[in-house]
């Protein structure tokens, strides 16, 4: 083997070793970054789990009722407020057409309740739930 060939292989081997070392060093750096990210993901999951628990705790029906009484005064829906459209009384054949008032854009001087209300609608809930009892 000539000296030139030997030198070529030595240089090649050295270059490959250096290249391999550089690449593996980069890979290690990236792996460390990935590991850090993975640790962050795990920590984040832990926090999410805590937040889910806190959300469930804070939305207990009893807690919501107390908060509602303090700030909103909402009332639960009553069964009497629910109706089926099939319960609406049928319109009789000779009943006059419901008024078709045109809605126009508001102008200065209109009353707040300026939309047509002179003729009440014939559509109404009747009889009341109380009468059904």
């Amino acid at each position: 083997m000539s000296t030139r060939t030997t030198a070529f292989w030595c240089v090649s081997a050295a270059a490959m070793a250096a290249g391999l070392f550089t690449v593996s060093d980069h890979v290690r750096d990236h792996k460390e970054q990935l590991a850090e990210l993975n640790q962050l993901v795990l920590a984040e999951r832990e926090r999410i789990q805590v937040l889910r628990s806190e959300l469930a705790y804070l939305t207990q029906p009893q807690t919501l009722e107390i908060q509602n009484a303090r700030a909103l005064s909402l009332v639960p829906i009553e069964a009497d407020q629910l109706h089926r459209s099939s319960f609406l009384p049928a319109r009789t054949a000779n009943a006059p057409e419901p008024p078709r008032n045109r809605v126009r854009a508001g102008r200065d001087g209109d009353s707040i309740s300026g939309l047509p209300t002179e003729t009440p609608s014939r559509l109404s809930f009747s009889p009341s739930a109380e009468e059904w009892r």
């Binding site: 391999l20 070392f21 593996s24 060093d25 290690r28 792996k31 460390e32 990935l34 590991a35 993975n38 640790q39 993901v41 795990l42 999951r45 832990e46 789990q49």
Partner: peptide, 19 residues
Amino acid sequence: STLTPDKQPSTEQVRSEHP
């Protein structure tokens, strides 16, 4: 530099792992 096993959790491990 190339064959040392990683002690850090892999992405697959993290995906399947639960806190």
